[in-house]
Structures are given as structure tokens and as C-alpha cells.
């Protein structure tokens, strides 16, 4: 078995990112789309931590720390928006939310 290198981690990161992208494209429920966005953020985090480890540079981990903080606040605001939206329109389905298109 070949030793696990930077490329292995980057391939996992790419695959996870594309899974998140696929979720954003395919799923029609705002909540699940939000979870897929979290997957994409986590894929980027994994790439940054892997680079930080193999480049012997701690800055990558600091950036991941900031990304996690921003993601947490983003989730809080986004979910508040979804709840406000649901209260007004009684749906979380993106195809029912086409007010800007019509």
C-alpha cells in the first residue's frame, strides 16, 4: 500500500466538494441545499488542513478556524431566513420561491 500523501487527501476533498455541488443542483428542498453547502465548505476545509500539514505551515489551520466560525454564523442567519420565509410562504421548496423570476 502506497503511503498516504497530499494527493490522496486532495482527491477526497474534490470528491466531497462535487458531492456537495451535486446536492445543490439536484435537491429542491432549501434545507437539504443548505446541508450540501456545508459539505462544500467542509471539503475546502479538508484541502486547507491537508496543505497545512504537508507544507508545514500553520496558516492553513488558522484559516480553517475562521472558516468554521463564518460557517456557523452563516448557518444561523440562513436558517433564520428560511424560518421567516416558511412563515410567510409555507414552503421550503425552491420551485415555489420564484417571486423574482415572475
Amino acid at each position: 500500500m502506497t503511503p498516504v500523501g497530499l494527493q490522496h487527501y486532495l482527491v477526497v476533498s474534490v470528491l466531497l466538494f462535487c458531492l456537495g455541488l451535486l446536492g445543490v443542483i439536484v435537491r429542491r428542498n432549501v434545507l437539504v441545499i443548505y446541508m450540501a453547502l456545508e459539505l462544500m465548505l467542509n471539503a475546502a476545509n479538508l484541502a486547507l488542513v491537508a496543505f497545512s500539514r504537508f507544507d508545514n505551515n500553520l496558516d492553513g489551520q488558522v484559516i480553517v478556524f475562521f472558516i468554521i466560525t463564518v460557517a456557523a454564523s452563516e448557518v444561523a442567519v440562513g436558517l433564520a431566513l428560511i424560518v421567516a420565509l416558511y412563515r410567510r410562504r409555507q414552503t421550503t421548496h425552491v420551485e415555489d420561491l420564484a417571486a423574482l423570476k415572475d
Binding site: V4, Y9, V12, E38, N42, N45, L46, V49, A50, S52, R53, Q61, V64, F65, I68, T69, A71, A72
Partner: peptide, 19 residues
């Protein structure tokens, strides 16, 4: 778990706590 394998122990803990 992958973060632990990358020796990013603090981030692994933060990941579980926050996420």
C-alpha cells in the same frame, strides 16, 4: 477523524463541537 490523521487535533475538536 481525517483531521486527527492530519495532526490537526484542535480543529478536529472544534469541528465536532461547532459542527
Amino acid at each position: 477523524g481525517l483531521f486527527v490523521l492530519l495532526h490537526a487535533f484542535f480543529l478536529a475538536a472544534v469541528q465536532i463541537l461547532v459542527y
